[in-house]
Amino acid sequence: MRWEEKALAQEAKKKGARVVTIDAKILTLDSTSEPKQIRKEFGDVALERCISYFRGLHVTAYLEAKGLTVINPHEVGETCGNKYLTTLALEKAGIPTPRTLFAFTAESAKEAAAKVGYPAVLKPVVGSWGRGVAPLKDRESANTIIELRDEMDGAMNQIYYIQEMVKRPPRDIRTIVVGDKVIAAAYRYSPPEEWRTNVARGGKTAPCPITKELEEIVLKSAKAVGGGVLGVDAMESPEGLVVHEVNNTVEFKGASQVSEVNIPAAIIGYVLELAKR
């Protein structure tokens, strides 16, 4: 349980809701269970906050099949937890997003990197906190990194996601979307000796104004993946804002430190609204 889940549970209790925190690690789910029984155990609405993407995704599918409202819905989780699907959804909706090439073997990945041009970025399709995100600075380092990826276990490691390196300042923008509102925005600055801006890697946040341009692109991105409670990340490219990621179980500790809005309270307000329906 992270800082975020504790804050969410506290806010829900403050608002007088009956809160049950359920640990997916000790859960057994029965395909034949009656929806009524599941509703009794899990409540009217479930806020999925698993730290493990696949675990959360599968619990969500189960609860939805049993008739529960889950935030975020399975389809949203599937799209956001997989960068490949996120890019496709953003591109389809006409949202500015970095150009990305996909490849399915090491050989074709090397060609893709050359085609997108150096420096490029190789990202794991599933993963977070900037883990395994590697800059491909030139042909030599690209080939070596791709060869190392080729030796890694796991079917997902054979899906290559190679993105143009956006010429951005040493920061990006984390926004928090709740329903149809952008409730908070924060710049995330990469720490010394690091190019990634993830707060989990030591990135520092600073207040960021929610401009009309930012609000528009962020809300459009949230809608493109299905909406809900989301963390939409944008970069300032020379051509304007580009959205590169949408997070399904958004972490907001960093944004909370520089935002005047009570982020967990806003999320719980949204959850309780859905529970009333």
Partner: peptide, 10 residues
């Protein structure tokens, strides 16, 4: 505690 899995995060 569990060790960090490759699908962990937000």
């Amino acid at each position: 505690a569990e060790t960090v899995g490759e699908d962990w995060g937000e």
